[in-house]
């Protein structure tokens, strides 16, 4: 833990034993456990259709799971009081803005719900991101709608920010600008942020922690720095690999069978363990981790 963000008493969000299955479909979440701590920026990774949106919607109480418990700031997600509700910001994947309103009308409407509202930030972002205040929202471009949705989510200075593919329609400059805003949220308030995106370079910059959603569970969550330093890919015969894992005390994360009794093993080494000389081990980047672990 960094001195900037000491471990705090209550996690911002807790999911425990959460299961959800669509009628006639496979389980989207299967006894899933997850925890987000204050000040953490967690990047959520998963293949298309893995259930990232369902997971984030369940976290926010927008979807009721078949089983399990979801708590935000220590309160049951279905019984949040108004003060706690006002601590949450959400940018959905699909724009849910009122299309007939103008941005100015929309923001005035939302402003009435929140005890806290940072007008200076709203005005600053509206100008910087070049959003017409008095044009109906339906006439804005996809990128402008997405920016407006982000402004709406940041305006009340949330302590927990949930972002579902927030940058899909932004250009690289717009994305960088958005990431700077996120960093500002963390610097100013120690906000907890969780976001899903397929743009791994963005995630790598701001997400200190990465969570991998696979087969209905958070298969792994760890600081990205640690994963890059500790995870290696080894190749050899199945018996060699078993012996090597035992010798190194490594935790296998993914095994891929190859021909002739050989396999490729992606494994996490214990902290500060060097790979012995003579053992071939490939380093991995975030793309490799995404491909292997989701």
């Amino acid at each position: 833990m960094s001195p900037h963000f000491p471990p705090a008493e209550t996690p911002s969000a807790v999911m425990s034993g959460v299961s959800l299955r669509y009628p006639k479909g496979p389980a989207v979440m299967a006894d899933l456990d997850w925890q987000l701590l204050p000040g953490q920026v967690v990047g959520l990774l998963g293949r298309n259709g893995a259930g990232k949106t369902t997971l984030l919607e369940s976290l926010l109480g927008l979807r009721s799971p078949d089983a399990g418990l979801v708590q935000l700031f220590g309160q049951h997600v279905q019984h949040l009081d108004d003060a706690t509700r006002a601590r949450i910001g959400y940018v959905p994947q699909q724009s849910d803005l009122f299309e007939a309103f103008t941005p100015a009308q929309l923001l005035a409407y939302f402003r009435s719900f929140y005890p806290r509202w940072n007008e200076a930030k709203v005005e600053g972002l509206m100008s910087r991101w070049d959003i017409a205040r008095d044009k109906p929202i339906r006439k804005l471009s996809g990128g402008q709608k997405q920016r407006l949705s982000i402004i709406r989510a940041l305006a009340h200075e949330p302590d927990l920010l949930v972002l579902d593919e927030p940058v899909a329609s932004l250009d690289p400059a717009g994305r960088r600008d958005f990431l700077r805003e996120l960093v500002g949220e963390v610097l100013d308030r120690g906000a907890t942020v969780v976001f899903s995106t397929h743009i791994l370079s963005d995630l790598e910059r701001v997400a200190f922690n990465i969570a991998f959603l696979s087969q209905g569970r958070i298969a792994l969550q760890a600081p990205l720095d640690e994963l890059l330093e500790q995870v290696r890919a080894f190749t050899g015969s199945v018996t060699e690999m078993a012996a090597l894992m035992a010798r190194l005390g490594a935790e296998p994360l993914k095994r891929t069978p190859l021909d002739a009794g050989r396999e490729r093993v992606l494994a996490r080494l214990p902290v500060d363990t060097a790979v012995p000389a003579g053992v071939a081990a490939d380093r991995v980047n975030l793309d490799d981790l995404f491909t292997e672990l989701t």
Binding site: S2, R180, R205, V206
Partner: peptide, 18 residues
């Protein structure tokens, strides 16, 4: 400072302070 560099690079401040 950590703050300046985190914002300039759009990188999490813990990465800079580390």
């Amino acid at each position: 400072s950590v703050r300046e560099l985190a914002q300039a690079l759009a990188v999490h401040p813990m990465t800079i302070s580390k």
